[in-house]
Design a protein around this nucleic acid. Structure first.
Lengths: 387, 387
DNA sequence: GAGAGCTGTGAATCTGGGG
DNA sequence: GCCCCAGATTCACAGCTCT
């Protein structure tokens, strides 16, 4: 499902000719359209209680100041668009409150809303959702498989974004949650609140005429696929008030859901329309066949310390006891004043360029020497899960 | 490190006899103690600007109604303690604001605060942190390796909690972040914002007289280990205003940090004191961690000439031999009539704004090209300042 | 053609000390 | 406060060139 456009057959004139549950004659004019305009004003023109689900990717209010360069002095192409600039938290809150109120009016009583954000804005979004009477069902963490690194070494790598999933009110008990479908999707394990997905790159990422990214914050289709699979049914109406390049609409169409997109920028709206027109709705069988990738979890050496399998100050040796190293609190080793990772120090004592520290270093803690890779294996067993 | 108590030797009377940086006579009475009382009142009695870091695990305001049962009808032991009940979001906000204000007063200008929570409360905590002038540095996701499943099949498995890490204000630029230590801890990759750790179980989990868990929300020591390793140094003072079973204090003591715990419930405080007394602090060598390069003594390029490792008139090149420069007697370089520092000339020949000349320029004096940073390293070793 | 190697880039609140 | 400048700082992919 990485690229809906690539799987497209001939574009159809009518955008949703075969969708269930909406006879052509009753098909409201705004359905399966990208509407151009301010999202609050446009939503106020939609019928109350007409939407099954909302996915919203509002401005994050990043509050960036200077520029940022990579270690090779290349410039990071930051989000510096006007639409992401707000004078204050108060201004951002007022904006957020306004569009969330409009969303709540058009949402069906058992409808749900998704909002995605980062630490810059998601706390304010969550607070306002709660204050307006929405009822938070989950917060979902999108773990980015390939996030941008931290270039200055001043913080943790910002490797995730947060989505809030909420019902219209606390007493809405019959919201859609396709528990069985998500469990099947996740190799028969309950779908957790943390999802590992790559960011939107490659041919899926829309480009402008010069080959640069068309939109600074295009979301991956796989993310929307999970959102819509979990909380909507075929034939449902999905609203996206910040439609952008139309990812929500494109995935909704592919999945047999109706969509309403609202976008302020006519250029983005036009690009979205072309993208959506090229989407071929999937067959029911095709929709059922999607499976996520699973990966072996990577265990850092520090986790062995955290798990108590080794203790700072312990001694490691190679298999024959020729080299000795001291374990330090941060998961590094120390040999005669030189410190570094298990791999670096393993290479260093052997005079090599590289070394797999997991198999080179041994501990005698419980009797005979055994490779520390055994300790890693025990942690993996204990965790008993992937992805 | 799964169970500090198991590794304990004979309990010591004085809780931190060997901590650095705090001579016994000046040791304030509240240091390395669990104080019993309301956290706001107690914090108001602490000196302003006296704390390096705060870890707070406040009530989550879970808003549970009715009991929760598993599929086999067994009852889930939920958090239903009085301290987790608030009449409204407004009441919870007022409570949160009060203790975060008190925290901000006792925090040093370059101190940082960690707050952990779930979707029930973390958005309100984050909003209030921002409103009070704290500056969010990261939000960290604790991915639970073994979360409680969702028994009703109505939501995603709630498999994570969120921590907010914030500095006291936006202009506090010199907060502690042990970047190199965390990178080494994570097998030489930058530490990301998502941490996979098991919940607190087994012998680490404190039990009451009947073998039931003593506290409903005891956090794993591994979580605090990462928190304190990343954002504090040995000898720092760590405050936990909701101390509970004393996990923060126990890990702080093991890691050679001072602690101040505040707990309302005398029974929890007493259990924490016993737990802490049984902790053996790690050795100084074990506590050493990767030192940041910025902290190493500065060596001017001229020192390389003084040491005879290069000679005026020598030629330097970049790694691929595309650029050549002449070494001059005053420690500057010259390229086609332009002279300047190794950094300035490195930037100049590449047409960039900046350049680290130590890694850009190479010498072939002893065979294969190697960066002049190697020469600097040899001087540092000669000074006996390595490690 | 296969594979190694080089280059570019992504929602980013991203330096610090001395004069 | 400002200005100057030394010098520290990146991971996973995609896509291209070169052998």
């Amino acid at each position: 499902m990485s690229n809906l456009r690539q799987r497209a057959a001939a574009p159809s004139r009518s955008l949703s000719p075969t969708l269930p549950g909406t006879p052509g004659l009753d098909h409201p004019a705004h359905l399966d359209q990208i509407l151009v305009g301010d999202c609050v004003a446009m939503m106020e023109r939609l019928p109350a209680g007409s939407v099954d689900a909302i996915f919203a990717d509002p401005p994050y209010n990043l509050q960036l100041e200077g520029g940022l360069t990579r270690p090779d002095q290349s410039k990071v192409d930051a989000v510096d668009d006007d639409w992401d600039k707000f004078d204050s938290f108060e201004a951002y809150d007022a904006f957020t409150r306004a569009w969330l109120i409009a969303c709540r009016r058009v949402l069906k009583p058992n409808g749900t809303i998704w909002v995605i954000g980062s630490y810059h804005n998601i706390f304010r979004v969550g607070t306002i959702l709660q204050d307006l009477g929405y009822w938070v069902l989950n917060d979902i963490v999108w773990r980015k498989a390939n996030p941008m690194p931290n270039f200055r070494g001043k913080r943790f790598t910002n490797a995730h974004e947060t989505m809030i999933w909420a019902s219209r009110s606390q007493d809405a008990k019959s919201y859609t949650f396709n528990y069985e479908a998500m469990k099947a999707f996740n190799d028969d394990l309950q779908m957790r609140s943390d999802w590992l997905l790559p960011i939107c790159t490659g041919s899926e990422r829309l480009k402008d005429g010069e080959g640069a990214k068309l939109h600074p914050t295009q979301k991956p289709e796989a993310l929307l696929y999970r959102v819509l699979l979990s909380s909507t049914n075929p034939g449902d109406v999905v609203l996206d008030p910040f439609s952008g390049t139309g990812t929500t609409a494109a995935v909704a169409r592919m999945m047999g859901r109706h969509f309403v997109g609202i976008e302020r920028d006519p250029a983005y709206a036009e690009a979205a329309r072309k993208r959506i027109a090229a989407v071929t709705p999937a067959s029911a069988e095709g929709l059922a066949s999607q499976r996520p990738k699973r990966a072996e979890p990577r265990i850092p050496f520090g986790a062995v310390l955290e798990a108590g399998l080794l203790t700072p100050g312990d001694e490691l040796t190679d298999a024959k006891g020729r080299h000795k190293a001291l374990v330090r609190a941060d998961g590094t080793l120390e040999v005669a004043g030189t410190t570094g990772s298990i791999h670096k120090i393993g290479a260093h004592v052997q005079g090599l360029d590289a070394c797999n520290g997991w198999t080179f270093w041994h501990t005698q803690k419980d009797g005979a020497p055994r490779p520390i890779d055994d300790l890693r294996a025990r942690i993996r067993e204990g965790l008993g899960l992937a992805s």
